[in-house]
């Protein structure tokens, strides 16, 4: 039998704790903590999406909140039309079915990412960061100026969307849906990075000129990674809207893009479970230190600084050592 690496052990413990925490909370009749675990899992999934672009592809996107928010708005708008029986742009009915919403969310985000990527991926470095930020801000201001869907006030989802015959209003069942989605996104990322495409993406990150001299154009590889990354993040956005029963332009704001970057860096850039570790620490700090002081970000900043300065490979790197992609 193949021996598990140290990182695999750490990842397994992390996943086990994440799965057991809401079960314990549910047994102790603490639904708040079940929802908190769902929040961790959803944010981790959004960061898994960003990690594909940022960590594995070296694409420092500062606009991933756009895809997170688009996923959220697809869920919100679909639920809004399903609730009052009206139609979207004249003839498209709403839906309260999660599979339909997820499919539309990933398609919408995928199309948006393809458009943004075709333009932004022609640049590099700080220009790429700024262009992705600019596109995200454009979508943010578009959402604010659209009164039909709540404008600045946002849009409420009155009844949580459905998944087959499951009772999605049960916090534990909803957590299970989110947890399954997170595991699926990590499994997908792992398979992708283990494929020839993944190796080519790593090559494009390490040295695109060398890749080009092998006859492979780096641009379509990067674009595909960017689009897939956006699709994962938008799926998380749709779940986030359902978790909160609410979607607002704040989901699209640059603060959110920054938070996702912080989570990826905190957990470990390019580490498969780095976003999960980052999301756990981020949400726990926000919840528990945020309960004592408004300035909880100060402590987050200290931790982030320590991780960046002293832990090559984020929290996962600190515990597991150098990765093969460091």
């Amino acid at each position: 039998m193949r021996k598990l690496s140290r990182e695999s052990w750490i990842n397994s413990v992390l996943v086990l704790l994440l799965a057991l925490a809401p079960l314990c909370a549910s047994l102790l009749d603490e639904p708040y903590y079940v929802s908190l675990a769902s929040r961790v899992v959803i944010i981790a999934m959004a960061a898994v999406g960003l990690n594909l672009a940022l960590g594995f592809g070296g694409l420092i996107s500062f606009g991933h909140a756009a895809f997170f928010g688009l996923g959220g708005y697809v869920a919100g708008v679909a639920a809004y039309h399903a609730f009052d029986g009206s139609y979207f742009i004249g003839g498209i009915p709403g839906s309260d079915q999660m599979p339909v919403i997820w499919l539309v969310a990933v398609l919408v985000a995928g199309l948006a990412a393809a458009f943004i990527g075709v333009i932004s991926l022609r640049t590099q470095g700080v220009y790429f960061i700024m262009i992705t930020l600019a596109f995200a801000q454009m979508i943010y201001y578009f959402a604010i100026s659209f009164p039909t869907y709540g404008g600045e006030d946002g849009l409420s989802i009155y009844v949580r969307n459905s998944l087959f015959s499951l009772d999605t209003s049960d916090p534990l069942i909803f957590f299970g849906i989110c947890f399954f989605s997170l595991m699926l996104s990590i499994f997908f990322t792992r398979r992708l990075m283990g494929s020839r495409f993944g190796a080519a993406l790593t090559m494009a990150r390490l040295n695109e000129v060398r890749l080009a001299t092998s006859g492979v154009e780096p641009f379509p590889i990067r674009l595909t990674a960017f689009v897939l990354s956006a699709m994962i993040t938008s799926g998380a956005g749709a779940l986030f809207a359902d978790l909160n029963g609410f979607v607002s332009p704040s989901m699209l704001s640059w603060h959110h893009s920054g938070e996702l970057m912080v989570i990826v860096i905190l957990g470990g850039v390019g580490r498969l479970f780095g976003p999960v570790a980052g999301a756990v620490v981020f949400v726990l700090l926000e919840t528990f230190i945020g309960g004592f002081t408004q300035h909880w970000q100060f402590f987050l900043g200290l931790i982030l600084l320590s991780v960046v300065l002293f832990a090559n490979g984020g929290l996962i790197g600190l515990l597991a050592g150098r990765s093969r992609h460091d």
């Binding site: 190796a199 790593t202 090559m203 390490l206 040295n207 060398r210 093969r324 992609h325 460091d326």
Partner: peptide, 9 residues
């Protein structure tokens, strides 16, 4: 490509 295996390279 230093951080890829021989096979992946």
């Amino acid at each position: 490509f230093a951080s890829l295996t021989v096979y992946e390279n």
